[in-house]
């Protein structure tokens, strides 16, 4: 991650206020997909906060990650409705099939998994999204198929 790119983001926040911490981290993550030590340091210098505080805040919120995302980012709904319709099995299936759990990225950097709360479409659950494409009424088999498709598209 380049320093001056972070600087560019920081420039959007002309006031040195702690209130800006979370928005800044969100912007950085939006740009790069994850946070780094470099980012923690720069943001700390800018907001005049100790690095430990930045790190502490970043690790509190589940959306921040210090590991790069996979090329294909899988979002699996585990809202109550999807759960009742069998989403837990899907999470296990992803683990079985790709070896990744919530918040992890596969060794080859291809897939990462994020378990999210209700996606707002409970009627069509279980729901998942892969790189912003949505899939509804997922079953274990369907999941496998979808993942295979993406895998193939890479080969």
């Amino acid at each position: 991650m380049e320093n001056n790119k972070i600087k560019k983001i920081l420039e959007r926040y002309p006031f040195v206020e702690r209130e800006n911490l979370i928005p800044i981290l969100q912007d950085i993550q939006y740009e790069y997909g994850h946070l780094t030590e470099e980012a923690v340091k720069e943001v700390g210098n800018y907001l005049e906060l100790p690095a430990s505080k930045i790190y502490s805040v970043a690790t509190f919120y589940s959306k921040f990650r210090f590991q790069p995302r996979g090329k294909f980012h899988l979002k699996l709904c585990r809202g109550t409705s999807c759960q009742i319709k069998g989403a837990e099995k899907l999470e296990k299936k992803v683990y079985k099939y790709l070896g990744i759990m919530n918040g992890e990225t596969s060794g080859d950097g291809m897939f990462s998994l994020e378990v999210v709360a209700c996606m707002g479409c409970c009627g069509l659950g279980p729901v998942m999204a892969l790189n912003n494409r949505y899939y509804t009424e997922i079953t274990e088999d369907k999941l496998e198929e979808i993942i295979d498709d993406y895998k193939e598209s890479e080969e």
Partner: peptide, 26 residues
Amino acid sequence: LHQGAGAYVCGEETALIASIEGKRGM
């Protein structure tokens, strides 16, 4: 607008305030 960063407990009002202040949402 203040966008949360993923914490259910930030629905609780004092945690919400902490989160807006840029702190851990406790």
